[in-house]
Computed example of a mutant assay.
Amino acid sequence: MTSDLPIVVIGAGPVGLAAAAHAAERRLPFLVLEAGAGPGAAVRQRGRRRPTGAPSRPE
């Protein structure tokens, strides 16, 4: 099954930009939607956070 519709990536944070890069490498049409002022806006505004479940300090 093929489609001419683009891949829509919601959010231009680290994961969204990685998804867009994968689409670009495969020459697939894509569109990145970001509510902030630019790529990574939420990361710059709030700072980087640890993933849920990550230890607070090395053991």
Rank of each mutant, 00 (worst) to 15 (best):
Gln45Tyr: 13
Leu5Ala: 13
Leu33Ser: 06
Gly47Cys: 06
Ala23Thr: 05
Arg50Thr: 11
Pro29Asp: 15
Ser3His: 06
Pro6Asp: 08
Ala35Gln: 15
Gly16Asn: 08
Ala12Arg: 04
Ala21Cys: 10
Ile10Arg: 01
Asp4Cys: 00
Val9Cys: 03
Arg26Val: 04
Leu31Phe: 11
Asp4Asn: 09
Ala12Gln: 04
Glu34Arg: 06
Glu25Ser: 08
Val43Leu: 15
Thr2Phe: 05
Gly40Pro: 04
Glu34Phe: 07
Val43Lys: 02
Glu59Ser: 07
Ala24Trp: 00
Val32His: 00
Pro55His: 11
Leu5Thr: 06
Thr2Ser: 07
Ala54Ser: 15
Ile10Asp: 02
Ala42Val: 15
Met1Lys: 06
Pro29Lys: 08
Glu25Arg: 08
Ala23Trp: 02
Thr52His: 11
Gly40Ile: 05
Phe30Asn: 00
Gly40Val: 07
Pro14His: 13
Pro55Phe: 03
Glu34Trp: 10
Gly13Asp: 13
Arg48Val: 12
Gly40Glu: 05
Arg50Asp: 08
Arg27Lys: 12
Ala24Thr: 08
Leu28Arg: 05
Ala20Ser: 02
Arg46Gln: 14
Gly53Pro: 04
Arg50Tyr: 14
Met1Cys: 09
Gly38Lys: 06
Gly13His: 05
His22Lys: 08
Arg44Thr: 07
Gly13Ile: 07
Gln45Trp: 13
Val8Leu: 09
Glu59Gly: 13
Gly36Trp: 11
Arg26His: 12
Val8Glu: 00
Ser3Phe: 07
Leu31Asn: 03
Thr52Cys: 06
Ala23Met: 06
Leu28Ser: 00
Pro14Met: 09
Gly13Asn: 12
Leu33Met: 07
Gln45Thr: 15
Ala24Asp: 15
Val8Cys: 06
Gly11Arg: 01
Arg48His: 04
Gly16Tyr: 09
Arg49Ser: 13
Pro29Tyr: 01
Asp4Tyr: 02
Arg57Val: 14
Ala23Ser: 07
Val9Lys: 00
Ala18His: 05
Val32Asn: 03
Arg48Asp: 03
Ala19Pro: 03
Arg26Asp: 12
